[in-house]
Write a protein that binds this DNA or RNA. Sequence first.
RNA 1: GGUCCUGUGGCCGAGUGGCUAGGCAGAGCUCUGCAAAAGCUUCCACACCAGUUCGAAUCUGGUCGGGACCUCCA
Length: 500
Amino acid sequence: MPLKIYNSLTRKKEEFKPITPGYAGMYVCGPTVSGESHLGHARPYITFDVVYRYLQHLGYKVRYVRNITDAGHFEEEGRAAEDKISTKAILEKLEPMELVQKYTNMFHWAMQQFNNIEPSIEPTATGHIVEQITMIEKIIADGYAYVNNGSVYFDVNKYNEDFSKKGMPYGMLSGRNLDEQLDTTRELDNQDEKRNKADFALWKNAPPEHIMRWKSPWGEGFPGWHIECSAMATKYLGTQFDIHGGGMDLQFPHHECEIAQSSVCNHTAPVRYWMHNNMITINGRKMGKSYNNVIKLSELFTGNHPLLEQAYHPMTIRFFILQSHYRSTLDFGNEALQASEKAFKRLWEAYENLLKIEAGNWQATDTALDEKINKQISEFTTFIEDDFSTAKVLANMFEIVPVINGIKNKQLPINSISSATIALMKQQFKIFIEDIFGLTYNITGDINILNDVLQLLIDIRKEAKANKNFVTSDTIRNELLRLGVQLKDEKDGNISWSID
RNA sequence: GGUCCUGUGGCCGAGUGGCUAGGCAGAGCUCUGCAAAAGCUUCCACACCAGUUCGAAUCUGGUCGGGACCUCCA
């Protein structure tokens, strides 16, 4: 069964065939570290983490490149713009690298919370100024860019004319016709420097107050936003690579510009499979800074935001995202998050129960059930290979949960299904839940001490129950529940516990 | 205005023309000293109108609603 990926470029699901057998190259647009990441940012990084994990699971040696955009016109909120040109002491001034470092650290922290595997290479834009300048020089030399007033602009019209003949018109990724675009672009800074409104900056001349600046053949300035991805992707993945991912909002113009720049420089289309995740919405509207409706990740994890009824664990968010398809919008809501929180807990506990079932050697007494489970498990692969339909895989898992719990609680005879099926369940649940979906269930604190303390309380409660001292036994149970520890009386008299 | 996407039960969300997606919430039952957990059963749906078809949530057309991109944006 081949892996199928929806390719934004062709608008079709296509079988994934790597350029180099056994290897896969993937580039994902990373964060702009001028501010803190919000819930919306969580989606691409979790989505493509699953893609990365699955490619690895398939045995590919994957190089996963995700950039850090740390070049640009950055300002920290609250800090006055005149800082930049003032004569203040150096430590009082806004140092761009300080700001960039701060938000990079926060981003990395959030990625860890989500249990995202770190990319193979995480290049920074500021670390690749030379490569970007070199690339711009090549574009100018080929006649697809022009210099004006210390800035360099990409000549979109010329590109479109020449590359349309090669079947690669400008706009092919986002489905736009350049001619229809011309008069709809709005007013921007320095529009007059451009020959045409559709042209975009490769290099910008830096005004005196601009603090991030580098020397270039065209004077002091800073790179345009689009060129960094082209330069770094080419450097680390080659002139053509397998997968490029990012949010749908980057499809135009960012990825369109990437294609244009790279195609001119490298004489080949840069990317085989373009993947775009959809947006996370809030009240039906895209979460974004300009809409003033963002919930930062730190707020989400602490519950410190007017829209939040409670704190949400990073794994709840991860599970929430996995419950939908990455190309659909996903609407945020407390009710929805709380549903995910409970669902994930139930799934994880069933998974743990499954791992505890002793394997033996017996045949199934309920062959219909046994066959059904085997089918559902084989569909894990069918679904993930169908453009990463994580939601369907989870749905199948939940169909199996009652069987696991039923066996565990003796509501269902263990030999209803064969021992081989149980072994298969253990194997496949582990692969999908932990390896591919990257889910974990970490209880904070020193789990060993907690274990011992709880065991003590459980023993006391057992004794109280044996003496019909229900006041004591109920007090222990109810107070623990209040503290977030739930005791569960098992059928055989044992008591287990879980933390909410 | 242009291009495109979308409208599924109380909430979130899968849905490739015919077979109960799934989760959370609600109801009933089993188990339990009482609970919880777990299991079993169950209610609630396909925006609207017309068409194609033996059969449509799924295809076509229209109506109405929501959204994205065209500007930085995951």
